[in-house]
Amino acid sequence: MTTPIWLKDEPWLAKWLGWFLDKLDNRDGEPSQRAITRRIKKSTLPALYDFNEDTQGRWQLLQQIARDHGIFEIRPDNKRSAFQEPYENAQCRLNSDCEALLREWLNRPKQDPVVQAWQQAINEHAASFIDNGEALLNQKPQIPGLTPAEIVSAFANIEPYLNQNLTLREIAARCFNGDSKALDNRFELLLKLYGDNANGIQPRPLLLTAWAPPGFSKLLIVENQDSFLRLVENSPEDYALLYSGGFRASATRLSSEHARFAFLPGSDPERFKQRWLDEQTECHFWGDLDFAGMGILKALRNSLPNLQAWQPGYQPMLEILNTGGGHTPQQTRKTAQTDPGTTGCPYTDSTLLPALRQTNSALDQEAIHIP
Rank of each mutant, 00 (worst) to 15 (best):
M1N: 06
M1A: 10
T3S: 13
W6K: 07
W16Y: 10
G18A: 07
W19N: 11
R27N: 11
G29V: 11
Q33S: 13
I36N: 10
K42L: 14
S43D: 15
T44W: 13
L45Q: 14
L48W: 10
L48C: 05
Y49C: 07
D50I: 00
T55H: 12
R58Q: 08
W59M: 01
I65M: 01
D68E: 07
G70I: 03
I74F: 06
R75F: 01
P76L: 01
A82L: 09
P86E: 10
R93W: 12
E99V: 05
L102N: 08
R108L: 08
R108Q: 15
H125M: 07
S128G: 03
G133P: 10
P148F: 01
N157V: 03
I158Y: 13
Q164E: 14
R174L: 15
C175K: 06
K181I: 00
L183M: 07
L190H: 09
L193M: 10
L193I: 11
P205A: 02
L206V: 11
W211M: 15
A212F: 02
P213K: 14
R230A: 15
S244T: 02
S244G: 14
R248C: 04
R248F: 08
R253D: 12
S267C: 01
K273Q: 12
Q280S: 15
H284R: 13
D288Y: 00
M294F: 02
L297Y: 00
K298S: 05
S303V: 00
S303Y: 00
Q308T: 06
Q308D: 08
L321N: 04
L321C: 06
T328V: 01
T338L: 12
D339S: 05
C345L: 01
P346T: 04
L363T: 01
D364L: 02
A367M: 10
